[in-house]
């Protein structure tokens, strides 16, 4: 696993998020454990990943042993235990996409961002982050758009018919967006 560059401090939660989590937990007076997924989503929504501190904080908040939260976090590929890039690419590698060229797409993305794809390991190191922290890549299982293969998700957006030659365009598209946003600020 890559070393954790900057440990998050989820104990410094903004009041708004704290209240949101309180409201979620209050819905399950019988078994606070039922709120674990939603609390984790809230934390990941704020920090982009769930740190060790986040796991401990969640466990304490719900009255659980930390290992019971780790069980959940480590099960779902949707939860990250380490920081991801500002743009997180999930490239589908299930049958249709794999046959339509998603592996080449992944290789191209990595090449463009100088990511060493050989470092990827399906279990031990599934997420690779570019040195500048802008982009992270990960293979995903079926994204439910097989008719439009290859498919890739960038953060919460789905992109279809993405062959390797469109990788640079896709990156540029998001760079332009972020340029607009920063210009707007």
């Amino acid at each position: 696993m890559p070393p954790n560059p900057k440990p998050a401090t989820p104990l410094d939660l903004p009041d708004e998020l704290r209240q949101k989590i309180d409201a979620i937990v209050s819905r399950y007076p019988e078994s606070p454990r039922a709120a674990v997924l939603m609390v984790l989503h809230s934390l990941q929504g704020r920090f982009g990943y769930i740190s060790e501190d986040g796991i401990r904080w969640t466990a304490e908040r719900l009255g659980l042993e930390p290992v019971k939260v780790l069980e959940v976090v480590s099960f779902y590929p949707g939860f990250h235990q380490h920081p991801v890039g500002r743009l997180h690419f999930r490239v589908c590698r299930t049958l249709s996409c794999a046959m339509a060229g998603s592996i080449e797409l992944m290789e191209k993305l990595c090449e463009l961002k100088g990511i060493d794809i050989k470092a990827m390991h399906g279990h031990r190191n599934p997420v690779l982050v570019s040195d500048d922290g802008e982009v992270s890549v990960e293979y995903a299982e079926c994204l439910a758009a097989c008719g439009f293969a290859p498919v890739c998700m960038v953060n919460h957006d789905t992109h279809e018919h993405l062959t390797a030659d469109k990788a640079a365009d896709l990156l540029g598209q998001y760079r332009a967006k972020s340029g607009e946003t920063s210009a707007a600020h």
Partner: peptide
């Protein structure tokens, strides 16, 4: 309850 299964699968 200190024991648990992580990385299920």
């Amino acid at each position: 309850p200190v024991l648990g299964f992580s990385e299920r699968g």
